[in-house]
């Protein structure tokens, strides 16, 4: 939705090839830097490659998912509704670290999308099972 279609940029994913586990790690808050937005753009593109994609929100990355973002005053596009659209791109594995929520006074109820909350230990285990980890 936000990224242009590029000719000659066809997905190299299956059939034939092995499906790899891609994990996108979001550790930065939105708006202060562009990482959250451009990270999301990679995730949306990756959906076209038929890989096993998961998105992880750690540390300030959990702020990306907070409900009620109103960006009119800063004149930067509010991209938080895009997280709700991920489902339509078959990106369904969203993981949030419990310790990161706790440290920010947040709970699942504050988040814009349904997520799976994992402990730091569970998050570490999940990371070890990946093939490719890209952090923003």
């Amino acid at each position: 939705m936000m990224t242009d279609e590029i000719p000659g940029d066809e997905p190299a994913g299956p059939p034939g090839g092995k499906v790899k586990k891609f994990m996108f790690v979001n550790r930065k808050a939105p708006y202060g830097t562009i990482y959250a937005l451009e990270g999301l753009e990679v995730v949306l593109i990756s959906a076209a490659f038929s890989q096993d994609v998961s998105m992880v929100f750690l540390d300030d990355g959990v702020y990306e998912l907070v409900k009620g973002q109103q960006t009119k005053g800063i004149e930067i596009k509010n991209f938080s509704p895009t997280y709700r659209a991920l489902d339509g791109y078959d990106v369904e594995k969203l993981y949030v670290e419990r310790e990161s929520l706790d440290a920010r006074g947040l709970t699942e109820a504050n988040l814009i999308v349904p997520v799976q909350v994992l402990s730091a230990m569970e998050m570490g285990e999940l990371m070890q099972q990946q093939d490719v980890i890209i952090g923003f």
């Binding site: 000659g8 066809e10 891609f22 990679v42 990756s46 890989q51 980890i133």
Partner: peptide, 21 residues
């Protein structure tokens, strides 16, 4: 210059993808 798909493609084709940032 090319699309973001080239990053995902690199993740698929390379044995390791290393991020510097």
């Amino acid at each position: 210059i090319s699309g973001l798909g080239q990053l995902v493609d690199s993740g698929i084709k390379a044995d390791r993808l290393v991020v510097f940032g």
